[in-house]
Design a binder for these strands. Structure first.
Lengths: 373, 373
DNA sequence: AACGCAAGTGAATCCACGG
DNA sequence: CCCGTGGATTCACTTGCGT
């Protein structure tokens, strides 16, 4: 049943099933997990179907068609059907997880609330919810919602009493400029050379996760030599990262094409030396500050007047973070451009506010907000 | 039952309950909401009890006691009890919400998954989940988890088919460096002078939300004059921000002390002028102009030729305001789509007319007609 | 070679009004 | 209520081609 074994099979007590280390098991995850011994896995990373309920197609403003996730494996008849599916795989995971093991699940608002509630119902104990902030999400094309710029991970132990789970706090803190690791992570989506593509140049899997995300999960909550299980293996990101970081993996995948691509990918991975297995320092976020934030924080009051350095133009601050120049309303940049009759303008340096010592550029407020972030 | 009315009571048809505008209703939220007329509220902001399951006291490294949320109102016997509670208030909210209204709920990982799943069960339609990233969260003292640096908001309409909800996309974009607004918001927690404190200097409410958070919610999803309901009014942040931003509020609060503090707080709020609140103009709200009008006014003559910006296609203006592309006749949009082989097309920006200084989009004619109207 | 511009793309529950 | 249609709507990043 295993697609291929990298060799190692963990010795177990007589009669117990052998453990298929570093192997992709082909088939339904519940059925495959039943073949594994109980309490044998240190960490589970699960990326289940999201049950996206898309209606009709979506086009970009340039009329090109968005390649949606419309695969059969993501279709469920109802919430009830999805909940039953969720419950089944969570129970199977629960059995194979060690008492000290933890479970990670990733999802979006389409499914994560149902998954989280079911986890609680099955007495998993949530340790954190983690937000994966995407630095480069797909935009919202119709301007009718907020850009969906994040996904959610839930990190849980088997029960409220489960102690002794792995959390590499010191290493994470050292890798985060000596600041405590937070529940919000900024990581780009998987693209470029990391994205698996077929001979036709098309993506192999519609929802391949970035290796940086899995690396942070494994570095945070597992140790070298640990066994990491991924019941929805897909393109094998979990396996690739586990191998690179000196962890063992077991993957379960229903689709033979996905599994084959994952195996080839993992075969090409070169494990890091044990001396290298420390978390990489995170790139510090470049904070972009919105003018609306300046107003929100009360640094400038709605109704306040702004002027350019030579007091030739004046504009009024509005509650939503736009400016009004006469009857024209727009961003600080747009209004600055219109005032001067210019093509563009940097509103942060163009607009000034009155202070006891004369006009000061509003950029000072931006600096203040950046300093605290 | 109302603690105090600010005066306004909306006149309703005979027999229908009067609407208690800008008032705090004292009592259980389900019972109080039943007294409101159906479909009368534009936006609901709900900050329900989080059902925190704290086990024993939490102490800082210096052994000082963390003032945790352990109030009686936050204790539920079981998930089932919490779910029943959630279902009850969500149903009450559903009844008073207008078909075009939307619901916001805030929570943490302790309760948000249960609330979100129940919302879906009651056929609320999730529009976004929003992450409130705290710039200054309470640190994690034990170093056994990630610092809990965010809370989650769910934004939902009454049903999948509910259209016409308010989303002030253009204003949000203008206030955000001309970039579309994202699902992750960075806002500090409520502290300093904004935090309500009693005579003893202790905080009045354990989970007072920052006004900046409510401001962003109301500016995003409501209009001046809208009715905003908060069924768990607490310290009255929703009411204070609603009053400042020219929205009406209704609050329901069970605790008389909270309600009294909220009322005093709201009384001190000075509303902003309407010129700082008027909705930023959106293109989709601009009056429609028929292309036939352009021809009628003689801005373009029948028989005149139009071309796209790169002069790949050409069409002829007809007297009735249609275009002809060879033998095909249709609207400027339809013909533009056909010319390109596209699914759809905005003819106003696609088609151009010859001028002494080169091609100019026919949208200029539309703007001219709008300007004179 | 370096640079610039065009084209492509990503887990998406993505329109409103009038007849 | 369904259907037709006007017409509004995108950000960060990668790849590839042409200069």
């Amino acid at each position: 049943m295993a697609l291929r074994s990298n060799g190692a099979v963990r010795a177990t007590t007589a009669g117990a099933p052998a453990f298929p280390l570093d192997t992709i098991l082909i088939g339904d995850c519940v059925a495959q997990l039943e073949k594994l011994p109980a309490a044998s896995v240190d960490l589970v990373f699960a990326d289940p179907p999201y049950n996206l309920q898309l209606r009709g197609d979506l086009r970009r403003p340039d009329d090109s068609l968005v390649d949606a996730v419309d695969d059969a494996w993501d279709q469920f008849e109802s919430f009830q059907a999805y909940d039953a599916f969720t419950r089944a795989w969570l129970l199977a995971v629960r059995r194979v997880l060690k008492p000290t093991g933890t479970l990670w699940v990733i999802g979006s608002y389409h499914n994560i609330f149902r998954v989280g509630a079911t986890m609680q119902d099955l007495s998993f104990w949530i340790l954190n919810d983690i937000v994966w902030r995407k630095s480069n999400p797909m935009p919202n094309f119709r301007g009718r919602r907020f850009t969906n710029a994040h996904e959610t991970l839930i990190w849980a132990s088997k029960s409220a009493d489960a102690k002794g789970y792995t959390f590499n706090y010191e290493a994470l803190k050292a890798g985060n400029e000596d600041l405590q690791p937070r529940s919000d992570w900024l990581i780009p989506i998987c693209s470029g050379g990391e994205r698996l593509k077929g001979d036709d140049g098309r993506k192999i899997h519609p929802t391949q996760k970035p290796e940086a995300l899995l690396a942070r999960v494994l570095l945070a909550a597992s140790k070298p030599g640990d066994v990491v299980l991924d019941p929805f293996f897909g393109s094998g990101t979990t396996g690739a990262v586990a191998k690179r970081l000196g962890r063992h993996f077991v993957g379960v995948e229903r689709d033979r094409d996905y599994a084959a691509a994952a195996q080839a990918r993992i075969d090409a991975v070169v494990p890091l030396g044990s001396d290298m297995l420390s978390p990489a320092p995170a790139k510090r976020d470049a904070p972009r500050v919105a003018f609306a934030t300046v107003v929100e924080r009360g640094l400038l009051a709605p109704g306040g007047r702004l002027a350019d350095a030579r007091r030739r133009y004046e504009a009024t601050v509005r509650a939503d973070g736009t400016l009004a120049l006469g009857t024209v309303i727009g961003s600080i940049h747009r209004i600055g451009a219109i005032a001067q009759g210019a093509e563009s303008c940097n509103g942060w340096t163009f607009w000034h506010t009155e202070t006891p010592v004369g006009l000061a550029p509003i950029d000072a407020f931006r600096e203040a907000i950046r300093a605290e972030a």
